[in-house]
């Protein structure tokens, strides 16, 4: 039987999320902030002469806030991740809890990180129009919802094909991948374009670098979450892998290699 309780799993999710948040926070601190600084310089030049509004926090505090944001989001995401893992792990590929964790993180990144980054890419400060923020928010979150529905549908389709057909595994995988690609293309075409034009004083290189940096931060968050949760869930506690109720040759092998 299971040796992880749900609270235990949840604690691992939160822990893995904290680790992932700190890792992504380092990307924020050393990579994204460089581009935010450049964008703020553009914004400042644009507003030169105008009556500037007083900032509530200094730049230094906001940089710390940027790291804190992704750490807090990482912990919360880890809790959701652990719950989702408990709910769907039977249907995930990977052959072990580590593999399943990485697979779930890959799906999460694709649906929640990559898909919106393609359709509504990140913008540095000074690009978005305040009047369109509600429209953009609805588009953004509905797209993520669409991505999650596709991910769920793809999983269901794979299960159906496995149960109802005698197709060999590569055929099944190809059919599922083709269906996923078609669904993603359809969603990208159906969802309307983002409403904001990029202001002409924002350099294309700045925009490109900021978007790459932002995607790197999101990718770091998901990748480290998947790997850390996988390690925390898979690695046996001392002696427990040898329990009679847990006769797992794979885990025994891991123990032999001393992975803790």
């Amino acid at each position: 039987m299971a040796t992880h309780s749900y609270p235990g799993l949840l604690a691992r999710g939160a822990g893995a999320g904290a680790i992932a948040g700190v890792a992504a926070g380092m990307v924020s601190l050393f990579v994204v902030e460089t581009q935010i600084r450049a964008a703020l310089a553009v914004e400042e030049a644009r507003n030169a002469g105008a009556v500037g509004h007083e900032e509530m926090f200094s730049r230094g505090v906001q940089v710390v806030g940027g790291v804190a944001a992704v750490v807090v989001v990482g912990i919360a995401l880890g809790a959701v991740f652990a719950t989702a893992f408990a709910a769907v792990h039977r249907h995930l590929p990977g052959g072990s809890d580590f593999g399943r964790s990485v697979a779930l993180a890959a799906v999460g990144f694709a649906a929640v990180g990559l898909l919106p980054a393609i359709k509504y890419p990140a913008n540095p400060p000074g690009v978005g129009q305040a009047e369109t923020v509600n429209d953009r928010t609805v588009l953004y979150f509905s797209l993520i919802l669409g991505g999650l529905i596709i991910a769920y549908g793809v999983g269901r389709l794979h299960g159906l094909l496995a149960a109802r057909t005698s197709w060999p595994a590569p055929w099944r995988a190809t059919a599922v991948a083709a269906a996923a690609a078609a669904a993603v293309i359809a969603v990208l075409l159906v969802w309307p374009a983002g409403p904001d034009a990029v202001p002409p004083d924002v350099p294309a290189t700045l925009l490109w670098r900021f978007r790459l940096a932002s995607l790197a931060e999101v990718l770091t968050l998901w990748a480290v979450l998947g790997v850390a949760f996988g390690l925390l869930t898979e690695a046996p506690k001392s002696g427990r892998g040898a329990e009679a109720g847990n006769p797992d040759p794979v885990r025994g092998d891991y123990q032999g290699r001393g992975l803790r």
């Binding site: 902030e33 806030g65 940027g66 944001a69």
Partner: peptide, 15 residues
Amino acid sequence: EFFHDGRHALGVPCH
């Protein structure tokens, strides 16, 4: 305001 950089960095829509 405190989490402002984080919103932009994670690609969430912001003003």
